[in-house]
Amino acid sequence: MKTSRRELLHIALAAAAGSLPLISRAQAIETAKILSGFAAGGTLDTLARRVATQLNGSYAKATVVDTRTGAGGQIAISALKASAPDGATLLATPMSMLGIYPHTYKKLPYDPMLDLTPVSLGVVFDMGFAVGPQVPVSVKTVPEFLEWCKAHPSNANFGSPAPGSVPHFVGELIGRAGKVNMQHVGFRGSQPAILDLLGGQIAAVSAPVGEFLPHLSGGKVRLLATSGASRNKFVPGTSTLVEQGLKDLVFGEWFGFYLPGKASVDMVSRANAAIRTALANKEVVEGLAVMGLEVRSSSPAELAAMLKADTEKWGPIVKAIGFTAES
């Protein structure tokens, strides 16, 4: 896939921003907000709130999290697009909405390359696949779950944080690997999906590993596998999909921070420095680890390159699955 002139200009802008010194804070931002497109209490919300706390008094006099759920994260991104590029509005978003949605939607209300300016990577994480009370406790692995689905086709389903997201496609690929047609149920975030899992309304959920951690001790939610190349350090006792015989199913994702598309290089530099400082804070690192999130910041150029690589990676996968937003 060739890099377009527009992409080159965007990456060049990000690279320039990463090399500039932090500008004067004489013109202080009164109130900044971090837009989040998924429900409060989830991993994205946790990242946004941890960072917002650190930005208070440094990047802005006050920083708040503005949750805009709906349309699988698109509402929050559209809100960023409509915001003034003055640094007062940031976005925390999963990669899915920027790197996968262009392959699943015929038309998006935003252009990931033009309407958003990369600032910094935030965290990286693996996916987890878990079952709840609807599935017998004798089911301890993904292959066993797939066999149970074959025996109970009316209950062969799974939930995810959003249709067309990485967790959604991980679930779809798991079903295909076992030749099981699992019905997908999309939610407005992982926690609403897990609540239905706990209530027995759905059989399984595919979501970031950290989303399950608060629920594992009770035993009602049982994590069957993780999606990384090696065992996840937050749940080392859980084997990977590959270990369970599902070859080539190795996937992860990241959350990143963005400014509106027309943000100046000076503002990008300022936001990048502030967010990287926030992410380096020990309390932030430890607090996010509780949610299964590994902190990893970046330059704007590095984030732009990551998005480009993931956009190219997911194109063929989405095509093979045959999913569209209208399907």
Rank of each mutant, 00 (worst) to 15 (best):
D66Q: 13
V205M: 13
E144T: 05
L20H: 06
W148I: 04
T53A: 15
V185A: 11
A325N: 14
G178F: 02
L307V: 04
I174R: 01
G37P: 05
H103M: 09
I202V: 15
E147F: 00
F255N: 06
A301I: 07
W254I: 09
T63V: 15
A304V: 02
V137S: 15
A320W: 00
V290Y: 06
G219F: 12
I34R: 04
V131I: 15
P208K: 04
E211W: 06
D115L: 05
S19G: 10
N281G: 00
F255A: 03
P236A: 13
R6S: 13
G178D: 01
P102M: 12
G287L: 08
A16P: 00
I194M: 11
A263C: 01
K2P: 14
T53N: 08
Y59F: 15
P167M: 02
A16R: 12
S24V: 09
F38V: 08
K81D: 09
S165N: 03
T63Q: 08
V268Q: 11
S264N: 11
M182N: 01
A320H: 01
L35N: 08
G292W: 03
K313Q: 09
G87C: 05
A26T: 13
F129G: 02
T277A: 13
K106P: 02
G164W: 01
I100D: 00
N272D: 09
V250K: 11
G228Y: 03
T104K: 00
A14T: 09
E312I: 04
E172F: 01
M306S: 10
S138F: 05
S298K: 03
I34C: 04
P214D: 14
R68S: 04
W314F: 15
G57V: 07
I77G: 04
V250E: 08
I275N: 00
L8A: 10
F255Q: 06
